[in-house]
Design a binder for these strands. Structure first.
Lengths: 243, 243
DNA sequence: CGCGATTTGTGCACGCCTTCACAAGCGCCT
DNA sequence: AGGCGCTTGTGAAGGCGTGCACAAATCGCG
């Protein structure tokens, strides 16, 4: 897919030693490994074959990914589950339980605010914002919706570095600008539009409709293949987003 | 990230002519081009440079992508907006307004059921299912929540080929099995787990927490770089999921 | 009609990622 | 202590995707 880094990655040998720059593809898989590992707690060690199966990837790929983190496996035995969890969580910075704010408590934002998958995997949603005066003050999952103009103040107080945009597309760029001004340096964008941000700010985009459209393409292709003389039903895919 | 096709792609020259097999990376970008094009309706033609900017990609990449569909541009002029929209929608199979069902109307499923981005981009959510008896009969966005056991019957009646799973992880595999049995051949999975499906069924996964974890990694990296002597603030990323 | 400006379509080279295959290392059992 | 089986870690090859740079083609204008 289409992950890319526009990073210049300047030569920085000191930093490289302290913080190995992992391939982007590897980083995208680490959370998957972590989830699989958490399901395996109780086991002491696990082989690359078993962990790869649990994470839905090739075992060679898994070993290469983990080798980039250092050697946390024992030949003939496997990987130490607890140690590996600790290492991956450290690399991903999850041990800090980062503060996250969410802007836009409409249909989707409402659900995200209550999504317990964030809390259970290393994040704290600490503030909700919206521009609609009618929504200010509303209580959602123990948080009070605040006005977007309070963003800068609250972000500073709570040391918020990550922001989630769940507004309509039309408002997203303005919100992104406000987030950047407030010191946020990572943005997860659910609005279907391209955001323009200064260097040093990371943006990841999730577009729910795009995923369906990709599936629709494969449906269309499957249908046109089976409809043709000599056409064969294709074998299945298992794809993951994010990467 | 980690998009991959486990497709065997058998030699099928007849089908290849009728339905060119596009690179997976290209397919993942087509929806993005389509969205940008819809924002440009009113213009007659558009250059690859302008469209690429609107879609957030490189212009050479855009031209190469579109060239895979055939020649719908005119040198010296640009691409015909209306024609390109029509072509991309055809390739993606969106002109059929595919029926989609959603299983799991909890926190996230509720939001997805009401998400208008699906309807506005070529899909019809025609049925909602849940296993919880307390939820059966509930009205959401004009649809009635039905029991999961009705899935096979409804799927056949409505010709549903795409299913969305928004259940807890523990229930996802069982739901996937039921979807497959009901004839669904494409699944969009929001549950944080790996699904096992037979050949011929496509699965795409969206894990909201994973996206945050990837951002967290970059935050961690940025922090460790700036803290080091000689460390430099890195330049910004703009990444897209999906592909 | 011819020329220049503009934009598409693409050959090519480079780099990243994946996958295979195997050497190196570890533990257990005798 | 030695050997055997198992698993990790990695070298190398191949494939895919990206982006540059340019040739080919079209339009408009004089």
């Amino acid at each position: 897919m289409s992950q890319q880094r526009h990073e210049s990655t300047p030569g920085n040998p000191g930093a490289a030693a302290a913080f190995p720059d992992l391939p982007e593809a590897t980083i995208a898989r680490l959370p998957e490994y972590l989830r699989a590992l958490h399901n395996l707690e109780g086991s002491d060690t696990i082989s690359s074959e078993a962990l790869a199966a649990a994470a839905g990837v090739n075992s060679a790929k898994l070993r290469k990914d983990l080798s980039h983190l250092g050697s946390y496996g024992t030949r003939g035995v496997g990987y130490d589950v607890a140690l590996l969890i600790e290492q991956i969580e450290y690399i991903l910075g999850l041990d800090q339980r980062r503060a996250v704010c969410l802007v836009g408590v409409g249909n989707l934002g409402h659900a995200l605010a209550g999504y317990d998958g964030f809390a259970s995997r290393g994040f704290r949603i600490v503030a909700l914002f919206d521009a609609d005066p009618a929504r200010i003050g509303e209580q959602i999952s123990g948080l009070t919706v605040r006005h977007i103009d309070d963003l800068a103040r609250v972000a500073a107080e709570e040391s918020i570095a990550i922001g989630v945009i769940a507004t309509p597309a039309g408002a997203a760029q303005a919100v992104a600008d406000q987030l950047v001004t407030a010191g946020v340096t990572s943005i997860l964008n659910f609005a279907p539009c391209v955001l323009s941000v200064p260097a040093g700010v990371d943006v990841r985009k999730v577009d729910l409709a795009i995923e369906l459209q990709i599936l629709s393409f494969h449906e269309h292709r499957k249908a046109s293949l089976t409809a043709l003389p000599g056409g064969r039903a294709p074998t299945g895919n298992q794809e993951a987003v994010g990467s």
